[in-house]
Simulated scan of single mutants.
Amino acid sequence: MIPYTVWSEAGGVGKTTLAANLSRAHANSGQKVLVIDMDPQDGGLTHHFGLDDDKGSADADNLVMHMIGRPRGDFGDLVRSSEGVDVLPSHNMLGTLDDLLSKAQELEEDTNPDPEYEFEKERQLRRVLVDADVPSEYDVIMIDPPASEGQHLYNAVYATGNLLIPFEPSPKGERSVQGLRDVINGFEDELGDIDVGVIGTVPNKLSGTNINQKYLDALEDEELPIAPVSIGERGSMLGEAWDNQVSIYELAENESYRDLRDYEQPTLEKFDELAEYITEQFATTEATA
């Protein structure tokens, strides 16, 4: 199984777009993929796949209900499919996840007969996934949390143990990786008993300028692994895909966008290469384990 969280400390660096199209690249290679949208904001990965019709429904079962031990149905019923990718959509209740987990912790610890029992808030997503046998059902589990620290991110990192970090070669992107190793060490301290691996940092929105190179050099100084694949600035194709609530692969298969598809074919190949690179990292780990 290949579990990882797509995360950057900075917003607006293309995290969700990267996750949506990378999930499709994994699926295209024959891997069974589950993407979990942990971001409560509108316009995220759930929107990208056109699956946000129940996001604001107070009656809809959702991931948070399962994480606080109050499910309204089977976990499998939460999962929906788009373009051959299984998606666990976001829900507005994620906006109060921190508070709800704190209340669940208080209730569980007050009512459990074992005085040593601890309800560990950051481990609830992993518990839900293991109880539903998700790790054995999927080849790839990808999580897209918000940029800010909190239980969304802690649960995502604890459930996957691995980070893929998009990096925009700009002042904003540089700030997002400065001290990133300290942030990762902080995750390990917060979560207690896991080592957080960085699969790679992915240069994103690359335009090939000298300014870009300056910030790429700064990224190397952080001594974090850099993926051998960079995603160029491709506003036309990515923007059209977003507007149509599809991946760039789905857009490329639409005859109406034939000219755009031919021009942007290298972008599709970059995502394919990135999915292959990620898969190889886990194959190497398993071979040496």
Rank of each mutant, 00 (worst) to 15 (best):
L88V: 04
P89K: 04
Q105C: 14
E122T: 08
Q124H: 06
L107V: 12
L125V: 03
F119E: 02
R127P: 04
L100M: 14
S90Y: 05
D110Y: 00
G95R: 10
L100Q: 15
K121C: 12
D99V: 12
Q124F: 04
D110R: 10
N92S: 14
P89I: 01
E108T: 13
N112H: 15
L97P: 05
R127Y: 08
K121W: 08
E108L: 11
E106P: 04
K121H: 09
D114G: 06
N92D: 12
L97E: 05
Q124V: 05
T111A: 08
S90R: 01
R126H: 12
V128G: 02
E108C: 10
L107C: 00
N92A: 13
V128K: 04
T111P: 00
M93H: 02
E106Q: 13
L88S: 03
T111I: 06
E120A: 07
F119Q: 00
T111D: 06
E116L: 08
L88K: 01
E106W: 06
H91E: 02
Y117W: 09
R127W: 04
D110V: 02
H91F: 01
E120D: 08
L88F: 02
T96S: 14
G95Y: 10
S102D: 14
G95S: 11
P89S: 01
D110W: 00
E118A: 11
P115K: 13
N92V: 13
N112F: 09
F119K: 02
A104W: 08
V128S: 00
V87K: 01
Q105K: 15
E122S: 14
L97D: 02
P113Y: 01
R123F: 10
L125H: 05
Y117I: 05
Q124Y: 04
A104E: 12
K103V: 14
P115Q: 12
R126T: 07
L125T: 03
V128H: 05
E122V: 07
E108R: 15
K103C: 02
M93K: 07
S102C: 10
D99G: 15
L100F: 10
E109R: 06
K103S: 10
V128M: 03
D98G: 15
A104Y: 08
G95W: 10
L125Y: 05
L125M: 03
L88M: 03
S102H: 12
L94H: 05
P113N: 01
S102A: 14
N92G: 10
N92K: 06
L100K: 15
R123I: 02
S90L: 00
D98F: 06
Q105L: 07
L101G: 09
